[in-house]
């Protein structure tokens, strides 16, 4: 369950006009829900996703992520454990430059100290599904934008997260590949993962109808 009530966030200690801020956001998404996050550039989509990923903490309001109340007084170890249950696909992919594709994908499982045999199976399955088998030993710098994006997607979903946050996860993919990825995210949602996807791609939104969160100038205009 994701629940926000009157959550606000801004850079620095005081809000300034023109900064990307979130104002009085309230929303509730049940476990297993799928939501599109829509809005023009600068509306605060990425900021909201960062907040839900706890890369930033609310300045005011209440936030509950996966049943845990989050605030500035939350224990760091609690936040770390919670992040292990959240998959995040960043716009800029954020892959480990020193690791191969396979090791990048395996990283969340390795941090959770899973058995290597189990990790190898999961990684191989995802490499196959995302068409990255031939590139499994390549470093991120050797990959195209689309390949990096697919690697980032694989890394985010490999641990079967309870919450998956995706910031423009298909902007570097071809249409067919993008549709496959969104299809997979919908399947994850059906299996119980809460999924929030920020996108500008109207075609995908129309092809995969789901409730949408509309952000404009830091305010949430519609929820379902």
């Amino acid at each position: 369950m994701i629940r926000l009530r009157d959550v606000s966030w801004h850079h620095g200690t005081l809000p300034h006009e023109g900064q990307a801020t979130l104002r009085n956001i309230s929303l509730a998404i049940p476990q297993g829900g799928f939501r599109w996050l829509l809005g023009p550039s600068g509306a605060g989509k990425s900021t909201l996703l960062r907040l839900l990923h706890m890369e930033a903490l609310p300045r005011s309001g209440d936030m509950e992520i996966l049943g845990t109340e989050i605030g500035s007084r939350s224990k760091r170890s609690t936040l770390a454990r919670l992040r292990q249950r959240i998959g995040m696909i960043h716009q800029d992919f954020r892959l480990m430059p020193t690791l191969s594709v396979a090791d990048n994908i395996a990283l969340p499982l390795r941090l959770q100290k899973r058995m290597e045999g189990e990790i190898a199976q999961e990684v191989d399955a995802l490499l196959d599904w995302l068409g990255l088998v031939e590139r499994k030993k390549a470093r991120p710098v050797e990959l195209s934008g689309g390949e990096q994006q697919r690697t980032a997607i694989a890394r985010a979903v490999i641990m079967r997260p309870s919450l998956l946050l995706a910031d423009e996860p298909t902007n570097a993919l071809e249409d067919s590949q993008a549709a496959r990825v969104i299809g997979m995210l919908r399947e994850l949602s059906d299996l119980g993962t809460t999924v929030i996807v920020a996108t500008h791609n109207d075609t995908l939104v129309q092809r995969f109808p789901a409730p949408a969160l509309q952000l404009r100038q830091g305010r949430l205009f519609s929820d379902e």
């Binding site: 170890s77 770390a80 992040r83 292990q84 954020r94 941090l111």
Partner: peptide, 14 residues
């Protein structure tokens, strides 16, 4: 950058 990524993936401070 790498430390930030690990942090975001849930690696603890410890």
């Amino acid at each position: 950058e790498s430390v930030t990524i690990l942090h975001e993936l849930g690696a603890s401070d410890g």
